[in-house]
Amino acid sequence: MISANLLTLAFFSGGESAQSGPLDVNYGLILWTAVTFIFLLVILAKAAWKPILKSLNERENFIKESLNKADQARLDAEKLIADNKTSLLKAEDEAQKIIEQSREHAEKLKSQILVESKNQAKKMIDDASLEIQRKNAEAFSKLKEQVAGIAVDAAEKILRENLDKEKQIKLVGKYMDDISKN
């Protein structure tokens, strides 16, 4: 250090002639400058530069991190929104499908019930008409029996009572009335 100082001095102390000029070098001042500066450098490096630069770096890192975090959060939120939208669409689709399905089902059920009831009604009508026919036939056969019985009775009475033609007609008429009254 001192030898370097002396080396530099060799350059600067050339024009020394007057008792004091701006280019004169005061050796003591060189020493004082070196001592002061190195003292200052050591103190500031220890007490100031190290913690200040550390704090500045810390703050820069903090800002960088915060920005990154904010960016990440924004991306996440966007993703979330997109997810929500798709799931909403999906749910709507599903609901639509369910409604469609149930409508179809109901339609099917309705037509089925309709057909069934129609069939049943038809069957009931058929049954009823069959029953009517049967009853009719039964009634007719009973009537036939009765008419035959009455006719036999009437013939018996006619045969018993010797009747003339007039009386016969009257009788027949009378019996006919009876029949019709019955």
Partner: peptide
Amino acid sequence: TATGNIAVTATLATISFC
């Protein structure tokens, strides 16, 4: 002005040199 003294600036320059 201490920096207007050539001894001071020469010393600072020497320290820079080192």
